[in-house]
Nucleic acid binder design. Structure first.
Lengths: 247, 247
DNA sequence: CAACCTGCCTAACGTTCGTTAGAATAGTAG
DNA sequence: CTACTATTCTAACGAACGTTAGGCAGGTTG
């Protein structure tokens, strides 16, 4: 299924789209197929040779899922990146599903841990909100493949695995809401319900993983700054804006 | 591949995740698996009996791709929704790829047509920007499955088909940029490059298709209104806000 | 009536999938 | 050297995939 629509008929060429599919990559803000690697063996560069095999498998799987989606990725593709055979993967992971689950769990846990630290910092509410947004955006730009998958491949999880991930997500949202509630009394804060604001904000910031391009027009920090300003203006609509370095 | 990881070993149950996967649906702002349909034959409700067969196939394919992705959807699933056999689909479409391409082309063309009309209206720049944003958001909420697919399944297109779709996209962005450039001279408008603003705006509005839920907390029109206000505050950062009906 | 087109069917092809069983290889410890 | 563990390999299984060939029913047209 991965190449040339995979299963063919009786061996004859299909009528349309036999050209197969180029590997995809993020370029210029949208998911686009990438040109075939210029050097024949660029793949190997992507895998950290010093990492453990399970980590390498996770990394390769992450990259491939980012490109093709969980259903569109094959165990044989992961194996090819590591230059081993597909069967060998089963020494380290019991199934394809477990690779996805492992990845999503680690990602969700790390994201949650960061937000917990911000909540525990004891800083004033508005500062916490700013840090929370910066953390969310920076995470989604720096670990953009993992973050992208964690959002888009929820549908590919087993029901039990999904429930585990959703627990982490709900916890994350709960903390975010509590920060927003702390802001509610502040000067000029929007009267919207926390769940609604949180949904809008997180959606926007999460989407960053879908279009951000390292080495692009903006650095991760600049994106975080812009989104924070954006949220700030949206969430404190009646507050006069003083500092604004236009450019 | 669609059910229970598809291909099994020697017939024995795999070690993890044998439970299979529930159909996915958008709920509460994220892509979540849906509980199995309460009535046994709810599927049929989704297909307009008065539509032509090709239209029904497009509709069923659209829905299934929205749930499982292009790679995760099978021709046999489409056929099952229409209560026919998979082979029969090939009387109407030459390939699976063509169903996706048809859908994306129609969607991109309709989106572009709307923006062209706004540009041709001859209204002042800021009004055009507002209408463009409302149009984009309303389109992505009202036709959210088509819109979602058009964004997420670019990677599943054949190179030639991709180029066709990208031409439409570039045209759309070009028009949007021209509207933004017209706004540049206006009072207090941000000094950012049009391409950067456009990217941020379109990304945010496009993401709507990923989380909007009809029958949810907000109507499509309310979402459009909120996003327009959001953009407005972001893009006219130094302008005093007069009308603001907090709620 | 015959000829034809439309739309669906049955049956199957060849490929690829996730996965398993069991042998082979390399390195380490006794 | 032997025994053992860790890791990869070869070979294959059965299922599901996209797709094709060819036939059959029903309506329309000559």
């Amino acid at each position: 299924m991965a190449k040339g629509e995979g299963a063919g008929g009786t061996g004859r060429a299909s009528r349309t789209g036999t050209a197969g599919r180029a590997g995809a990559a993020v370029r210029a803000g949208t998911l686009l197929p990438a040109s075939p690697s210029r050097r024949s063996d660029r793949n190997i560069q992507l895998i950290d040779a010093s990492a453990s095999r399970p980590e390498q498998i996770r990394a390769a799987g992450c990259h491939l899922m980012f490109l093709h989606g969980y259903a569109g990725m094959t165990m044989r593709q992961i194996a090819a990146l590591l230059q081993i055979k597909a069967a060998s993967l089963y020494y380290h992971f019991p199934s394809k599903q477990e690779i996805l689950f492992d990845l999503m769990q680690a990602t969700a846990a790390e994201l949650l841990r960061g937000l917990r630290e911000i909540l525990a910092s004891g800083e004033p509410p508005e500062a916490q909100l700013e840090q929370a947004i910066r953390w969310h955006v920076l995470f989604h730009t720096r670990k953009r493949e993992e973050a992208f998958i964690s959002h888009s491949e929820l549908r590919s999880l087993t029901p039990e695995n999904l429930e585990t991930i959703l627990k982490l997500r709900r916890e994350y949202e709960k903390i975010f809401d509590s920060i927003l509630r702390s802001c509610q009394r502040a000067d000029g804060f929007t009267g919207e319900k926390p769940a609604v604001i949180r949904n809008s904000i997180l959606t926007m910031c999460t989407a960053t993983a879908g279009w951000f391009s390292p080495g692009g027009e903006l650095t991760a920090e600049q994106v975080a700054e812009k989104l924070w300003q954006f949220v700030r203006h949206g969430v404190f609509p009646q507050r006069a804006v003083k500092d604004h370095s236009a450019a």
